[in-house]
Computed example of a mutant assay.
Amino acid sequence: MTENTDRISIAARLRNNFLTGLIICAPLAITIWLTWSFIRWADSWVKPYIPTRYNPENYLQFAIPGTGLLIALIVITMVGFLGKNLIGRSIVSYGESVLHRMPLVRTVYKSTKQIFETVLKEQSSSFKKVGLIEFPHPGTWAMVFVSTDAKGEIAAKLNEAGEEMVAVFLAPTPVPTAGFLMFVARSKLKLLDMSPEEGVKLLISAGLVTPEYKPSPEGAMAAFKDLPLSDTVEPQRAAVKR
């Protein structure tokens, strides 16, 4: 009986050690693989366009991973720097005017530029808030990422009742690369204190990785104000008497 118990305890310890090692090694291996894959993808796109005389691999006996990615970052930064001065803005405006004359290209360019300007704008609040909406039916809640307020024709059509509408992105689990764009009333949206990064973790893990709840100061003050006067004053009086 003792031998069987010892065997079970040894097997349980080995299983626990394996699971602990898996928790440590799996995220590290996946992170390294994704980073390496991204570097190789960037190199495969950039290196063919590097002139031979400027490619350091032609002077070395081995390949340097990340050369294409580094050169791409330098070129993009230089283009952004040149695009801020008068000459650069003139060149960009001329290039955009040429693209706007092309029937199919102008639609793709304008849409892509608008998306990048909205997402990468420093003061933009797009996808910086997480909320809950009742979906697919009342009583069932789904997590969404708040995009922006409804604008243009959609706002004119949906705001007829006087209720402000908000555009939200409903992403599926566990791969949030596609989803649904939905317009909901602001009063039907429950904002959460968690960050978008924490929301993505919760979404990808199917609810297994729950972020720690840290109430905002505004929410704590609102909860304090909602308390009855007797609940806040009487304990203080009792403490003073003691």
Rank of each mutant, 00 (worst) to 15 (best):
M102D: 13
P136L: 02
F116V: 00
K129A: 15
E160W: 01
G139L: 04
V108H: 03
K151H: 07
F127C: 13
Y59I: 05
Q61Y: 14
D149P: 01
W141M: 08
G95H: 03
T140G: 01
D149W: 07
P176A: 13
L73A: 13
Y109H: 13
I115G: 11
R53F: 12
I133R: 04
P136R: 11
E134Y: 02
Y59R: 14
I64Y: 09
E160N: 05
L69Y: 03
N55Y: 11
P176D: 13
S90M: 09
S125G: 08
L170W: 04
K84N: 07
K121V: 07
K113R: 14
V175L: 14
P56I: 08
S111F: 13
P51C: 01
E96C: 01
L73S: 10
G131P: 08
A161Q: 08
I91G: 14
K84Y: 05
R101W: 05
T52Q: 13
G152Y: 10
G131A: 12
G162Y: 00
H137F: 04
L104C: 01
R89E: 05
E134N: 07
I91K: 12
A167S: 09
A72F: 09
A142R: 10
N159A: 07
G88P: 02
S111T: 14
N55S: 13
W141H: 11
K121G: 15
E153S: 09
S125W: 04
K84L: 07
R89K: 15
N159C: 06
M102K: 04
V175T: 11
L120H: 11
T173C: 04
G68M: 04
L73M: 13
V166F: 08
Q61H: 14
T52N: 14
T148Q: 15
R89N: 05
E163Y: 05
K151R: 10
F127L: 15
N55E: 15
